[in-house]
Write a protein that binds this DNA or RNA. Structure first.
Lengths: 145, 145
DNA sequence: CCTGAAAATATATCGCC
DNA sequence: GGCGATATATTTTCAGG
């Protein structure tokens, strides 16, 4: 993992569908060399996947919320969580609550219905997202030459 | 936006570097037709980008936390937020706190230093992530044939 | 580890239905 | 909207430093 690897990661974080040839031009290295470095980073698990980012709004999902949750039937709650399409992210956390989840629903009504379903497993505090300032800032610094 | 479009989105959410030819084989449609549908969804903003997902741990970032923040100097705080590489996501929220951010740092020590820097702008409650059950579940259902 | 060249794939751009 | 055919790019593979 040297500076060249970080540049490759930065390019792919910015646009995961960029061609390897284009990266190779950007960093002035042959295309097979970039391919090989990339393959190694994938094998090592530095890169965990490539995802298209979709607009919730354009897909009819107009409400995003973070739900803090306290459950004492963790196993059941986690099974419920995996089966719930509304839950996009699920984390175990320290503090008064033991879970935090990001929830995306069509409307505040469907959010309320989802929360009702959750309350079989424990209790919650909900923070509704009013606006997203930014998301998915890169973990790798834009290293300049 | 019909079922075919959803299948294309599902494929790209699962693997953003899949070739269009491979998608066209999966859904039994010609490659130019898939290319055209994809171009339209990009133009309409249904797809907002393509991102490589990186492993924080493999990049030396061992601490993830969600920080609830209350600030009454919002403008200054947001400028600080954009300039802080530790803040991966930043949201405005309803409730007692007006911001929620996802923060990724090398260690709990660097998290503490970051929180100290934040406290110029307001006060915070921090939930440290103990483990990630899942992240980035697809917004589009895996529609079966 | 890297480069360079050649073979195999993939994508962009047609004209046509 | 979608298809097939073709031209251009890209990726894979591999011999050689």
């Amino acid at each position: 993992m040297d500076r060249i690897d970080y540049k490759i990661l930065a390019a792919l974080h910015d646009n995961a569908r960029i061609s390897i040839s284009e990266i190779s031009r950007m960093i002035a290295m042959s295309q097979p060399a970039v391919t090989e470095r990339l393959r190694k980073m994938e094998d090592q698990g530095v890169i965990t996947g490539y995802r298209a980012e979709l607009s919730p709004t354009k897909l009819g999902k107009h409400t995003t919320a973070f739900v803090l949750f306290k459950s004492n039937s963790c196993k059941e709650f986690e099974a419920f969580g995996e089966a719930s399409p509304e839950i996009i992210d699920l984390y175990r956390t320290s503090g008064e609550y033991n879970y935090l989840m990001k929830v995306v629903t069509e409307s505040s009504e469907t959010l309320a219905a989802f929360l009702d379903a959750c309350h079989v497993f424990g209790f919650s505090t909900t923070l509704v997202v009013l606006s997203t300032r930014f998301e998915d800032k890169s973990l790798v610094e834009g290293i300049e030459d």
